Simulated scan of single mutants.
Amino acid sequence: MSSEKASSQKVIDLKRLLEEVEQNSESTLFAPEKKEGDTAKINVLMNRAMRFLSQRDHGEAELRRKLLTPPVPFVKPANKKSSWSARRKPEQNDFADEVIEKAKPEPRPVPEEISEEHVQAVIDYCYQHHWLDDAKFASRYISGRSKKGYGAQRIRSELMQKGVDKETITAALEATEVDWCVLARDIATRKFGENLPTDWKEKSKVLRYLLYRGFFQEEIQSIYRDFDD
């Protein structure tokens, strides 16, 4: 029981640190080096989270994975300074035969380990401010990918790879207004022309293409039923 109390107290302390970051009039959200300890580390993670979320929507699992991955430290490459003696004419250069060693690049610093508790605190903060919502993320993702011509099967697979749970994906797909049969027909005619091929060899190309785009067999067969009618 004592360990559980200690763990819950740690989460409470982290949330207080987040509130401190938000309420501090001289917030170091964009200048984390000015503070020390957990607050500075959470500031860094918060800054990264906002940068990721400002670029595009993220699900919780994808954002968590990115935050737990230490960023690669940037090391400025060493400038190659030309030697004054090397620029002189050979007859004026007393050091023409001298070997000039290239400056070695500085070694990259080892990334600091990221605390899962800090990441969880940032995730909770994002939920509290409605920056994270897996249901809305799945819905917007389905809308965006379907407009690019991808079927429900492929979109489902991509969302699962991003860590969205099956129930959320299923609910979002059921709620969408996309007519997958109509979309399959549009994608096929865009690729192969209005008069779709009917001989087996050419027809199989349409089948493989639409399967690759993530459409189900039933949806692909429906466009030929409509075509035959």
Results as ranks from 00 to 15, higher is better:
17 L>I: 15
17 L>W: 12
17 L>H: 03
19 E>P: 00
19 E>R: 01
20 E>W: 02
20 E>I: 02
20 E>D: 10
22 E>Q: 04
22 E>H: 01
23 Q>C: 03
25 S>Q: 12
26 E>P: 00
26 E>G: 07
28 T>H: 07
30 F>N: 03
32 P>T: 12
32 P>C: 09
33 E>F: 10
33 E>V: 10
33 E>M: 08
33 E>W: 13
34 K>A: 15
34 K>R: 04
35 K>L: 13
36 E>R: 15
37 G>L: 03
38 D>K: 01
39 T>C: 01
40 A>I: 11
40 A>D: 02
41 K>G: 02
41 K>E: 15
42 I>S: 04
42 I>M: 11
43 N>M: 08
43 N>K: 00
45 L>T: 05
45 L>N: 03
45 L>Y: 06
46 M>Y: 07
47 N>D: 13
49 A>M: 07
50 M>C: 04
51 R>M: 09
52 F>G: 00
53 L>M: 13
54 S>N: 13
55 Q>S: 03
56 R>Q: 06
56 R>A: 08
57 D>R: 05
57 D>F: 11
59 G>C: 15
59 G>N: 10
60 E>Q: 12
60 E>H: 09
61 A>S: 07
62 E>R: 11
62 E>V: 02
62 E>T: 14
63 L>C: 10
65 R>L: 12
65 R>D: 15
66 K>F: 09
67 L>I: 12
67 L>T: 09
67 L>P: 03
68 L>R: 00
69 T>P: 03
72 V>A: 05
73 P>I: 15
74 F>R: 11
74 F>G: 00
75 V>Q: 06
75 V>T: 13
75 V>G: 02
76 K>R: 10
77 P>H: 05
77 P>G: 14
78 A>K: 07
78 A>I: 10
78 A>N: 10
79 N>H: 07
79 N>K: 11
80 K>T: 08
80 K>E: 04
81 K>T: 10
81 K>F: 13
81 K>Y: 12
81 K>W: 14
82 S>V: 15
82 S>Y: 14
83 S>N: 13
